[in-house]
Design a protein around this nucleic acid. Sequence first.
DNA 1: ATAGAACCTGGAGTGCGCTCCAGGTCAAGC
DNA 2: GCTTGACCTGGAGCGCACTCCAGGTTCTAT
Lengths: 141, 141
Amino acid sequence: MTSGQPLPQDPEPSLTIAQVAERTGLTHDTLRYYEKAGLIERIGRTTGNQRRYQTADLAWLEFLLRLRETGMSIADMQHFARLRSEGDATVADRLAMLREHRAGLADRIRALRRNATALDDKIDHYEQLLDERQQGTDETT
Amino acid sequence: MTSGQPLPQDPEPSLTIAQVAERTGLTHDTLRYYEKAGLIERIGRTTGNQRRYQTADLAWLEFLLRLRETGMSIADMQHFARLRSEGDATVADRLAMLREHRAGLADRIRALRRNATALDDKIDHYEQLLDERQQGTDETT
DNA sequence: ATAGAACCTGGAGTGCGCTCCAGGTCAAGC
DNA sequence: GCTTGACCTGGAGCGCACTCCAGGTTCTAT
């Protein structure tokens, strides 16, 4: 088993919302919005009702950010978060979600690479146009 | 010079908005919105004021779609379209825009690939969890 | 000639993902 | 004790990229 309850003298590095905002690049408004929306479970509070983020909260947030950066919608992240909160019984479902998301991501990367190549062609075309234009400034054929 | 004005007997393959919608995957509303927004210049009309898209319109639309798919905003596409409508003098500006967009795209593809790798790790982790859970169903260590 | 589908316009409405606001509470330094 | 800045809540507002609507016109097939 693991050892400790969060005793008072536990040096668990709890962060304020401002510190988390700086670390993640999110605003405090977005952090509160994510909590309200159920993307992150209710963050622990001080006696004065102020949030204190623990290491595990940070790790989950960073995972969420990876999902977001790869284009997952808030709705899907809510779904994933709900499954997670339901415990180990939902591991298979969560795995399925991640696999599907991963597959979609692969598709999107492939599409972007194809479009990048097309863009390169267009850029080449523009470079040629520009060369001709600059060469032709004096109208001599 | 090139040869023909669009004479009546010119077999220029003009398409209705519905046909263009089907070809591009855009809705007719989106096509009209893009025209209203200045992303595409005013499409030629029949005497009865209905749009007829020409080959050149299609080509431009497909280019716009590539810009969109690679994440360019409507505002930036408007900017590009405006430059284009101003003629050859803006070739250098347009080239600069495309190069910048291309560079951002490269960054985004790199970030997606990094995130994809992180996702793969997470998936591996979930697969292991699932294996343990299935093996451990009978509680024998 | 006429029915019905496709098209037209200007403008309002929608969904997403935040972002801002008002009005208050809490914590730390002077 | 008091000020000042960080934090709290519920709810309204915003920008983007469409999407829909009402009311009218045009095209096509019979």
